[in-house]
């Protein structure tokens, strides 16, 4: 029975997958992934985003944006967080000229509904300018979008 149990354990271990993720990612640039094990303590996110201390340690853990440069042309914390966390998806929506990430961006920038089609196609046409290099950071992107 002992042998059987150890065989059983081995098979289950074989069949289960692991969640190891590369920890070198940060949220400032492209390719950022959120780690499952960093889902955060309960309500941590709200506690931090609501108490106004930007750059707090817990915030950095949850978002990976701790070491990110701040945009120069606009001060909008939600926008900073959103762009830093969703750069890849935003790049895709900008290239396509539509999508929920663009819609969210427009919401956070308070762009009225009727101006959005124009705004989206302007961003699409200027994709090269917004995502100018592989090392572009979230702050660069926001500044580029604002100055278009």
């Amino acid at each position: 029975m002992k042998k059987f149990l150890s065989a059983l354990g081995g098979v289950i271990l074989l069949a289960s997958s692991s969640y190891a993720v590369n920890k070198e990612n940060t949220g400032c640039g492209l390719g950022y992934m959120i780690f499952k094990e960093q889902e955060g303590l309960v309500y941590e996110l709200l506690a931090v985003t609501t108490n106004g201390t930007f750059g707090n340690q817990t915030f950095g853990i949850t978002f990976g944006t701790l070491e990110c440069k701040k945009p120069e042309k606009i001060a909008n914390r939600k926008l900073e967080i959103f762009v830093a966390e969703n750069m890849d998806e935003l790049a895709q929506d900008i290239a396509r000229g539509n999508g929920i990430y663009l819609e969210t961006l427009a919401d956070l920038m308070n762009i009225p509904e009727e101006e959005r089609p124009q705004f989206f196609s302007k961003l699409q046409k200027n994709f090269d300018k917004i995502f100018s290099s592989e090392n572009v950071t979230s702050a660069d992107i926001i500044d580029a979008i604002v100055s278009l």
Partner: peptide, 23 residues
């Protein structure tokens, strides 16, 4: 890896951004 991904991802999207809208 991440570096290769970013390079290729941006390259493909750049070409995509010239293609207008598809719904």
């Amino acid at each position: 890896d991440r570096r290769k991904y970013i390079k290729k991802y941006l390259y493909a999207l750049k070409l995509r951004s010239k293609g207008g809208k598809i719904n």
